[in-house]
Nucleic acid binder design. Structure first.
Lengths: 208, 208
DNA sequence: CGTACTTTTGAATCGCATCAAATCTGGTGG
DNA sequence: CCACCAGATTTGATGCGATTCAAAAGTACG
């Protein structure tokens, strides 16, 4: 992977990382199916997804895969900063653009730059909240409620941009893709929802 | 709340916090139903549960409560370090022992003590992993699989200590308490599980 | 133009939510 | 110490909705 033209860095990275880490970053274009790292592999780089989608998944005993997280823009496996091994694997589900930062440099930077450490903690806190929200969503009964919750929490103004397939969304909200397709169709028929190629939009009731 | 006799601090706190923050900690005994903080309240203290159980929950639109997290030993709402408001409420579900640390002191400490910041990041990373595991659990189909997953991931050697009611466990794994009771009974009848007042134990198959 | 994947619809089964009600438990106050 | 109450535990009956298995049509990509 080549070193990065600094001006090409996503603003999320430029605002977060100290300059010395920005220069240490490398970049690559990844295609669908590429594996960023394997379960039980040793972390040497921290990956940041700028474009495309990465799923963070674990392979169960019967070989079934459970999606733990989808990432379209952000770090993958921040929690593995000091882990000797990955506890999950990361795979591209759509072609994309990936930045990588050496983990030891990251660790040093966090120790030597306390403002950077504070920003990093902030990022982890946001991630914690996002995960708690996801747990909340998975606790809801019924596909419909989960869809609405997803649009309300991950979308903006009742609109959820579709950056990935509905199938991967189905996995994320913990239902089969068949159930999701059927529920979306039913909701649209009831006028609760509008679908397009690029987004899901909650149909606002005019009078409350 | 009185200041704390330093030697009474849980070791988890003594290993994590700088001494100046340890002296700033206060302590209280809380009883069932006590509310540590309210949804939308302003965070001024960071709470650490040493004994008893706290649930971290959000009240939904129809007034139903969703349990986001149960804490028996650890920080509650670490993610609210820089939040202007809590996005959830925290309630004791059993009497317990609570330590409180002033949030501004915590923020200052994280900025001035980089080793402390590194330990804090470590703690957040562990919490992230725990939450991802919980999402994984909630994605499983069937109460039985969730129970087994819970015992495997939160227990030790196939034994899960019951620090709280089965009902609160049911909420945590996202099923009704009736379904949990029935499933446990069925699993016990099939010899998959042993129950006692204090723990659930997976029945090991002798031969694989 | 074929291959792989997503999207879609169908049918059957069944596990779980739901509503109800009884028993048991620990804790409180009289 | 006992009556009482709130909550936990348990069992029962019912119906819906999601999983599962199957198959077809649509779509992207090399």
């Amino acid at each position: 992977m080549p070193p990065v033209n600094l001006s090409a860095l996503p603003s999320a990275l430029r605002d977060l990382l100290p300059v010395e880490l920005q220069s240490a970053a490398t970049h690559r274009l990844a295609k669908r199916g590429d594996q960023l790292f394997k379960q039980r592999g040793k972390p040497v780089q921290m990956f940041f997804v700028a474009e495309g989608e990465v799923v963070f998944q674990r392979v169960g005993i019967q070989g079934e895969t459970v999606v733990l997280q989808r990432v379209q823009h952000g770090f993958v496996a921040e929690a593995s900063l000091q882990s000797p091994r990955y506890h999950c694997e990361a795979v591209m589900t759509s072609p994309g653009s990936i930045f990588a930062i050496p983990i030891d440099g990251l660790r040093n930077g966090l120790l030597s730059d306390s403002l950077f450490a504070a920003r990093w903690i902030n990022m982890l806190n946001q991630e914690l909240k996002r995960l708690r929200t996801q747990c909340e969503r998975l606790s809801l009964v019924g596909v419909k409620d989960r869809v609405l919750h997803l649009i309300e929490t991950e979308g903006k103004d009742g609109r959820l941009m579709l950056r990935a397939s509905l199938k991967s969304i189905a996995a994320e909200i913990g239902v089969t893709h068949e159930a999701l397709y059927r529920t979306l169709a039913a909701m649209e028929k009831q006028g609760l929802l509008q679908r397009s190629d690029v987004e899901l939009r909650i149909q606002q009731r005019r009078t409350l």
